[in-house]
Amino acid sequence: MPIVIEQLSHTYLPGSALAYPALSDITLTVSDGEFLGVIGHTGSGKSTLIQHFNGLLLPTSGSVHVDGLDTREKKLRKQIRSLVGMVFQYPEYQLFEETVERDVAFGPKNMGLDDAEAATRVSEALCLVGLDPAEFAEKSPFELSGGEKRRAALAGILAMRPKYLVLDEPMACLDPRGRREILALIESLRRDFGTGIVMVSHSMDDVAMYADRIAVLDKGSLYLVGSPEEVFSRGAELIEMGLNLPQATQLVRALRKRGVPIEHDYFRMDELTKELVGRWRHER
């Protein structure tokens, strides 16, 4: 069963002089095991949107259903939050326990799992994020390196075994290898466990590489949703919104401007490379 968002609007401080409409009339479905990329300029409503996925924010109008459960129902919220894992930007800032093990166990314990089950979940999650439980479980989360903290925080969400994982800029401030490792982890969750992924990112290349579909937000509205191909073929509109394009798409546009007729809207560098090499060989 999917996450179904219907005609969602959200206004901050409604009814006051400072009322600020952040989202208007958004209809969107996230299917089981799908990888949805969410892109949009800062202030386009991305953060507001994703906080609706697990009822941290509630619709001013419209509705959000997670596997048929309405987020407006207070009784269902705990269940919804264990279905939808939410990884905020810089999740390492949520670490608080004395040991990594206890911190990762926070979510499972809140779900009401017993100690034995929680312990299983903790070591499973730590292994997933590449932190060896034997080495890290007893450490204080505050003595880890930046990249390890990020992964420990991620483990804290994965230990709840969410069916959907919502991530806000999960690679921010990591070095190139750190970024690759986190992306590989997210991709493997989808592949091995069928976890549905919603990822907000400013990195068009990452979104282009992994997403099945991309939702483009602009000024609080859903401007466009479609396959990477559909979305990035409308490069001019994205640039108009202040967004970047994947580097392959940038090159395709630059080549067309120079009179090189490339018909296909490439958005992955490996495919574009193949095309260019093919052309070169053909010309010879």
Binding site: Q51, N54, L56, K78, M86, F88, Y93, Q94, F106, I157
Partner: peptide, 16 residues
């Protein structure tokens, strides 16, 4: 702002 964000992050982990 930070308090709000941390509070939400912990609520997402089932904190009540």
């Amino acid at each position: 702002e930070e308090t709000d964000r941390i509070q939400k992050a912990q609520m997402a982990r089932g904190a009540d």
